[in-house]
């Protein structure tokens, strides 16, 4: 039996409006995709219990409104985050170009103890729309993630359930490492790199 101590891992999902944050979360937690999700207003979260290396943890996935304007009010839930997921739409350059801003916004608002080691995971969503619509190549995204502290990168489709499970597995693991490093005073020097050799299908990390 796993340890009875309950671990709650808080994960914040950020990215431009319409990149598919709500859809990714729902695909992962509820195994459902709908074309009729409304634009998220305010914030909401879903929880899912998962096992990470024999530990049962509860993931609390926070979904936020994508419009920048609404960020200033909803910072209450940034605090205490264990991992931040940055989502963009591979068919929209703009959503890719704002990733830095989202990352900075998060670091400013959440002010984690050690910003340099804080785990981010990048998801390039909507890969199901076909190569002819794609604006950001896998290579470009990959280079971007490498340059910023080797952020793990996954190309996903919430619609076709591509790579969603795999991405959240890494998210959960990195969140757990972060949680533990906070707990024990930050002795884990680099929790991010753990997953670098996890080369999953559709992911060229």
């Amino acid at each position: 039996m796993a340890s009875r101590k309950k671990v709650l891992l808080k994960v914040i999902i950020l990215g431009d409006s319409g990149v598919g944050k709500t859809s990714l979360m729902n695909q992962y937690v509820n195994k459902k995709f709908s074309t009729s999700y409304k634009a998220t207003i305010g914030a909401d979260f879903l929880t899912k219990e998962v096992t990470v290396d024999d530990r049962i943890v509860t993931l609390q996935l926070w979904d936020t409104a994508g419009q920048e304007r609404f960020q200033s009010l909803g910072v209450a839930f940034y605090r205490g985050a264990d991992c931040c997921v940055l989502v963009y739409d591979v068919n929209s350059s703009k959503s890719f170009e704002t990733l830095d801003s989202w990352r900075d916004e998060f670091l400013i608002q959440a002010s984690p103890r050690d910003p340099d080691s804080f785990p981010f995971v990048v998801l390039g969503n909507k890969v199901d729309m076909g190569e002819e619509r794609r604006m950001i190549t896998q290579k470009r995204a990959h280079t971007y993630c490498q340059q910023r502290g080797q952020m793990p990168y996954f190309e996903t489709s919430a619609k076709d359930n591509v790579n969603v499970e795999q991405a959240f597995e890494v998210i959960a693991r990195n969140a757990l490492l972060q949680e533990e490093s906070e707990e024990y005073g930050g002795d884990f020097s680099d929790p991010i790199n753990i997953n670098l050799d996890q080369d999953r299908e559709g992911c060229a990390c």
Binding site: E68, D100, D104
Partner: peptide, 8 residues
Amino acid sequence: TRASGLKD
């Protein structure tokens, strides 16, 4: 303009 550079 926000400190993070997010603007709209």
